[in-house]
Amino acid sequence: MLIIFYIFAALSVLGGLGVLLLRNPIHCALSLVGTFFCLGAIYVMLNAEFVAVIQVLVYAGAIMVLFLFVLMLLSSKDSEKYANKWPIGKILAGLLSLGIFVQIASLFNASELQLGPKGEYPLEVVEEVGSIALIGRLLFTDYILAFEIIAILLLVAVIGAVVIAKRRFQ
């Protein structure tokens, strides 16, 4: 179990490094798809099957296909000649992100990690009812308002995308 987690963790970090380092944007998108698949596998190990399924369907499926479509539509010839002209910028970026990493990682120091009281859905309850059934029940009872609002948000996003991306008539 643990060794499988480490394999998937290493693969997902490798995919993230691919996004950072590969020259061709299409290769970047494909390595990001790999990262999303590995994260989906880790979600399965964390007993969050629903999240794993929508991770693969929505992220690796829908969103990344959208990215690939746009990348293939906008094949600019000068694709990766735009190196950073300012070398100090790279050093500054490295230092800044190192600082961010140290800050985040120091929060996760296990001995100081203060978790609040436990919730009401331990693993046995989730296994008995099923995580998808639980999520559906919560979405349509406690979170119904947020669910309705997010539906309107999706509608607005679709209309907005069509309006922004269409060609203007002369």
Partner: peptide, 11 residues
Amino acid sequence: MDSMTGVIFIF
């Protein structure tokens, strides 16, 4: 934390 809220958040 034995909670379901995080999963709903992810949705």
